[in-house]
Amino acid sequence: MKKMIYIGSIVLIAILVFSLLLFRFSVKEEFSIITAESINKDVLNNTKAIIYFSTTADQDYDNKGVSYAVFVQKNHMLKVFPMNGLELGSIAIGNDQLLLEDKNSFHLVDDEMKQFHLEEAQYTGERTGYLPKQDIFFSIYNTGFNSGGYQSDVRYGTSDGIKTGSIPHYIVASGVNADRVNILTQDFEKNIYTLQEVFIEEDIEVKEISVLQNASPENMQALAPILADKNFYYLILSTIESETNESVGIYRINKITRKQDYFEFIKYENTDLTATIPYNYKNSATIYEEKLYYINGLGEVYSFDLQTNDIIREFEIDHASKSKVRNNEETYFYENQLYVLRYQQNTRSDYSLETYSLQQGKRTDVFDILALDKVLQFKNNKRVYSYDLKVLH
């Protein structure tokens, strides 16, 4: 009997080793390069998630920067659409439509892809999104100084055409609130932060909401998108107190009275503060069922109860790294789910998409992503980094 168990164990080990080798050798064929002509609704229907990668702006000095929209298929394989580079570029999902962007172009996917070339190149993105009331896609860029001061350019439109405009401010943080975009701007001369709203329709209109009180831009940074419910705006800002100490707070602004409240949210002491920075500050927080959720770079998920103001450390993503070293990991909130693009070397596929339930506070699914490490290999001495993750539903 023992001999039979021993033989069975050897057979099982042999099968496992063979399966692992077969997987490793087959990974080479698990992604394909696609063209604009081949991207349509069929591709989207078979896509679980899309990841945006790009070179940094300083790698585009020779006009050879590159970005990739990686379509993660439901069969775990990848379809890769190459574009020009755009540091901090993003993806936007609309009404059965998709926006991809690079420094020169808008790529709108519906039944087919429509491409719009823009003469003036952009090199650093700020916020890309979709406004359902206007049925408009938009993208805001961190453009830079000109003769009139700081300028953040805007591209917006539909499959019928794209317009351009500008916002005369440096943008610290941004977020989409129903039919408008909220921005937190910094005035370098007055040394103040101002919460404003941007209306994008035929033209672009910017209206001031409130100057942020008791906020000193010299030692502060934004850690999350600007969020809002029917009564308040919420901003998550941190104050650096020393090289290892930091206080993260929530600024709440009443939409009607403009009254401001401050809540201490997270306190870091004797900590490597670089490691606490979110994987992606544009996708690090959400509001779901009267709670504001926030995930930091340590993989810790905190909540702020919008009714009681209670603060809870809800849960932590499994085996979260405490290192400041990042390997293209991303986060994305959707309704009651938190999705995390994870990198774990020497595992079955290196990269995976994990799903966490905000209500249960635990991981509910792991989806292997094949061959992503092969896509991200050096090419022409260029290195790409992840800047966005969207999960399709």
Rank of each mutant, 00 (worst) to 15 (best):
T56K: 11
T47L: 02
K2E: 14
K259P: 15
E264L: 12
N142V: 10
G94I: 02
L273K: 05
L341T: 04
L20M: 14
A49T: 05
Y294V: 08
S321Y: 03
I266L: 00
F23Q: 14
N177W: 08
I369E: 01
S90K: 05
N214A: 13
Q196E: 12
Y279C: 01
H319C: 14
A92T: 03
F81N: 07
Y279G: 06
D203A: 10
L235C: 10
Y334I: 11
E246N: 13
D350Q: 12
F145R: 13
A57P: 15
Y281F: 10
S247T: 15
I140K: 00
F265N: 01
R252P: 11
T55I: 10
E335D: 10
E201D: 13
K259W: 07
K324M: 11
L16S: 12
G299D: 00
N327E: 14
D58W: 10
L338R: 02
E243N: 15
L99F: 05
R180L: 05
A371R: 02
N40C: 00
Y268D: 08
S90Y: 14
M77Q: 11
G149Q: 06
V375R: 12
N309W: 09
L184S: 07
D110L: 10
Y130N: 02
L108W: 03
F333P: 09
N45H: 02
T308R: 04
D135R: 10
D62E: 14
T164M: 11
E37G: 08
V375H: 01
Y6N: 15
L44V: 04
A320W: 00
L16E: 07
P168T: 07
G144I: 08
F304L: 11
D203L: 08
Q59W: 09
Y339A: 02
F378H: 15
P278K: 04
P278C: 02
E330S: 01
L131G: 00
Q221W: 11
L237V: 06
A371S: 12
G361L: 00
N214R: 11
S238G: 08
G299N: 04
K28E: 15
I266H: 01
K79I: 01
M220H: 07
T158E: 12
G148P: 15
T55L: 10
I39S: 01
G89R: 03
